[in-house]
Design a protein around this nucleic acid. Structure first.
Lengths: 118, 118
DNA sequence: CCATCATTCACCCAAACGGTTGACTGACTT
DNA sequence: AAGTCAGTCAACCGTTTGGGTGAATGATGG
């Protein structure tokens, strides 16, 4: 059905964004930092690393696009907060993979048992 | 302790490899294919896509380096099999993140309760 | 009125990436 | 002896990516 495909496509894109965003070590480090310290300004985050403020700003935008982070802008100060929810989409993909794999094994086992009866 | 750090470093590198490997759509698709069809030759995999055999061969090498796939070489035929175990390392990282985050919230809550008593 | 501050924007650069093509290897088929 | 087959290696191309610099913005504080 068309609608289902659209939803699936959307989810696939979201998954892609999440995985790509978390595939970079700097961004993973920023996520950890945000998890332990709570919401931080971009400047505060940049202060922890020896990369430029600009670079951090770009990383935040990538994380934001993936939904891994949200931004609360209070005039010139942007408070960045980690968002855990998107991780579940990755969990979901893993579980799908695992169940597809298990399904095939089950079928294989059944086929073997069938062979026994011959 | 030095030894612990070495182990952690190793694990971090492995996590990085796994996330980067699964951040590409073609590679994710290949993984799904392998999950549902079982071990396949590189040629068989390539036949499913309109990218060259060479390109698939490279993707397989990336997946192999991440441990997401193993190779059983029977002379010129290379049987590629999906490996689920590495996914648990990503699960593990997610859970660490979530627990770090929860820990901070707990501390925050405790501090608020403390304030109430003033 | 001028400086400061937090952030983004517009470029620039080098490295990495996904993909291609072409040559090579080594056994099996004809 | 020649050709096919499965896969790798090496070189190349265009695009993306992570990083950097410098300027712009726009309210706030001297």
């Amino acid at each position: 059905m068309l609608f289902t495909h659209m939803v699936e496509r959307q989810e696939a894109d979201r998954l892609a964004a999440i995985l790509k965003a978390s595939s970079d070590p700097s961004r993973r480090s920023i996520l950890t930092l945000l998890a332990q310290e709570g919401p931080l300004r971009i400047t505060d985050i940049a202060a922890r690393y020896d990369i430029s403020l600009n670079s951090v700003s770009k990383h935040i935008k990538v994380l934001e696009a993936a939904g891994l982070v949200t931004r609360r802008t209070e005039w010139r100060e942007h408070l960045i907060e980690i968002q855990m929810e998107p991780l579940s989409l990755v969990d979901q993909w893993f579980n799908e993979l695992r169940s597809i794999w298990a399904l095939r094994l089950d079928a294989l086992e059944a086929a073997l048992k069938e062979d026994d009866n011959d």
